[in-house]
Design a binder for these strands. Structure first.
Length: 308
DNA sequence: CAAATCACCTGAAAGC
DNA sequence: TGCTTTCAGGTGATTT
């Protein structure tokens, strides 16, 4: 499933192929994928038709495209098209004559541009992801909303529905001290906190297990016992694991075009803990264990990652 | 306030 | 072989 590194690659692809173009047509073969757009399909279409995608920004696993307002062109955007890939979502930039994918949910047509395909397709098998249009609101810290052109360069706005999530470990404005204080105040298990997008975004089950393994910490470690170096260690581990995946994704394909088209699927990850229960820990040889925690698998080395 | 539960989905894989 | 069950996951609303 797509986690932060995959979403970032998609963002870069969209920035390259879609940013600056205007939307000429919209179709929604499966309205379930825009169920978070409360006003329905017609409103969704009406808001997108004629709008220009000004940028493609990401925080954690949320992607958004600030839209021009035809009435006040030149002014700050105040709405955005939000996309979340959920478990199985893909954003594909393709020519309209490509056969429709089995799980094609939303289709956007763009103004023609030389050497760029004209359609953006949202394909999603499990429908945990989706798209919707929403208002942009000021960020809590007044700093740029996320990763992207306008995101990094000063547009301190974020979609309402993503305003509650924390900055991700790859965000240049990530505030370690703020996270550390929140962790100490919360009284919960460490993995639970890592998966809670309100603390830090972008970390899913796979990278949580990998980061915990790399930092040699137990998933149930109490957050109130975390010391500053502990918080640093786990976040640095998460950052390391994710940027390694991003590097791999950025170099394992010929071009961004292939990436944004999802032709090669998701990154093949080199995993040390996740899904490796029953196999030896790459660090010490102890057999990796799997326990159910929060209704999902937690994979860890019983020796390297002890709960004290 | 923390944590558990559920809802949303499909299809691969395992179990019978 | 063929049916049924389990599982996987992110997010958000609701309940304990």
């Amino acid at each position: 499933m797509p986690e932060l590194p995959e979403v970032e690659v998609v963002r870069r692809g969209l920035e390259r192929w879609i940013a600056g173009r205007s939307i000429t047509d919209v179709s929604v073969p499966d309205p379930r994928s825009i169920r978070r757009h409360a006003l329905g399909v017609e409103d969704f279409r009406g808001n997108l038709m004629g709008a220009t995608v000004l940028d493609v920004v990401r925080r954690g696993k949320f992607l958004w495209m600030p839209l021009s307002d035809s009435l006040t062109s030149g002014a700050e955007p105040h709405t955005a098209l939000v996309a979340h890939l959920g478990m199985s979502g893909q954003l594909l930039v393709e020519s309209p004559d490509q056969p429709h994918e089995k799980h094609l949910k939303v289709r956007l047509s763009f103004s023609p541009r030389a050497d760029a395909p004209e359609e953006l397709r949202f394909v999603d098998q499990r429908i945990f992801g989706g798209m919707f249009i929403t208002s942009l609101v000021p960020t809590a810290d007044g700093k740029p909303g996320g990763c992207g052109m306008t995101g990094d360069q000063g547009l301190a706005l974020i979609p309402e529905e993503a305003a509650h999530i924390g900055r991700d470990p790859l965000d240049s404005f990530f505030d370690l001290e703020a996270l550390h204080q929140k962790l100490r105040a919360r009284k919960t298990g460490l993995k639970r906190a890592l998966l809670d997008q309100g603390f830090v975004s972008g970390i899913g089950n796979i990278y949580a297990d990998e980061a915990l393994w790399a930092a040699k910490m137990h998933y149930a470690r109490r957050t109130e016992t975390m010391r500053r170096p502990d918080t640093e260690r786990i976040i640095e581990a998460a950052r390391e694991v994710m940027s390694r995946a991003l590097d791999a994704g950025g170099t394992s394909f010929d071009s961004l075009y292939v990436n944004v088209n999802g032709a090669s699927g998701y990154f093949s990850r080199s995993l040390n803990a996740y899904g490796r229960d029953g196999e030896p820990c790459p660090r010490c040889g102890t057999i990796i264990k799997r326990e159910t925690f929060m209704n999902r698998g937690s994979h860890f080395c019983p020796l390297c990652q002890r709960l004290r």
